[in-house]
Design a protein around this nucleic acid. Structure first.
Length: 269
DNA sequence: TATCAGGCCCTAG
DNA sequence: CTAGGGCCTGAT
């Protein structure tokens, strides 16, 4: 068991940010996260975060996954004091972090996310893992399912994933899986590319457009300057940044600001 | 019943 | 290159 104290780290906000669909809040108030072949339970109490794993597991995986060595205070402090909208958004989402998730998982996840709602995306991911992922058992006995490998999905018929409720996105996932398996798309190489180059490469995948490519860059490759523009962000930009978003001020971490705005837009009342 | 949800593809002009 | 129709499915 690991216990740490970190500023700007709120599990509930991260869980509800829509960047990760394999993190769930359990009835007891603890959180469950599945990433690659790792399973974790964690919770927060009195400003402390408790990770139910070894020091080795924490240091070699989860610390980086949650971006815990990054200081998010500097992002919050960079906000223009006169930008009341951003201040308000960041205030509501001040515990946000940009996770470092698996590239393949993010490609599939955000292919599924298009023209879709969060609840259904969760359901789709659950189904695709249960049907095509590897069944695993955590140290505490919990049964969970890994994320299906490209090889598995590449062998399916293009419409096979419609049974997992993907709808017309089924063929996007299957064709992209095939492109990965045959080497047309090289995930390892994309992982070494700078933002612009990686984005360009991801756009070659059938079903990946600019918004989806930016989500993949931000949530798996940790290119913090990626700035996915979806309908919510579009509306916020139209309403509050008619003269243009201050790209220069937030250069290098525009994606963090995007997450503050997005979280605020879907949670404000 | 129509519209829309964290878009993208494809075809016309 | 820009505009617009079509697309699975469930919620409102």
């Amino acid at each position: 068991m690991i216990k740490i104290q970190t500023d700007h780290f709120d599990l509930d906000q991260i869980c509800e940010s829509g960047q990760c669909f394999r993190m769930k809040k359990l009835p007891e108030g603890t959180y469950e996260v599945i990433a690659r072949n790792h399973y974790l339970r964690l919770w927060q109490q009195d400003g402390q975060t408790y990770f139910d794993c070894s020091q080795e597991e924490f240091g070699s995986f989860w610390e980086a996954y949650f971006d815990l060595n990054n200081d998010y205070g500097r992002y919050l402090e960079s906000i223009n004091p006169r930008d009341t909208y951003m201040l308000q958004a960041a205030h509501m989402a001040e515990g946000m972090r940009i996770l470092k998730q698996d590239l393949w998982e993010m490609i599939v996840t955000f292919l599924i996310s298009q023209q879709n709602n969060i609840k259904r995306i969760h359901h789709c991911i659950d189904l695709i893992c249960e049907v095509y992922g590897e069944k695993c058992i955590a140290a505490d006995g919990t049964v969970y399912y890994g994320f299906p490998e490209p090889e598995v999905l590449a062998g399916l018929a293009e419409d096979a994933l419609m049974v997992c409720n993907l709808g017309y996105r089924s063929k996007y996932v299957v064709r992209t899986a095939r492109a990965v398996v045959c080497g047309e798309i090289n995930l390892d190489r994309i992982g070494t590319m700078p933002y612009r180059k990686a984005r360009e490469e991801l756009l070659k995948c059938y079903g990946v457009g600019e918004k989806v490519a930016d989500c993949i860059c931000l949530f798996s490759l940790h290119h913090l300057d990626a700035f996915p523009v979806d309908t919510h962000i579009r509306q916020a930009l139209d309403a509050h940044y008619r003269r243009g978003f201050p790209n220069q001020r937030y250069k290098g971490f525009r994606g963090v600001m995007q997450q503050y705005i997005f979280y605020y837009e879907i949670h404000k009342k």
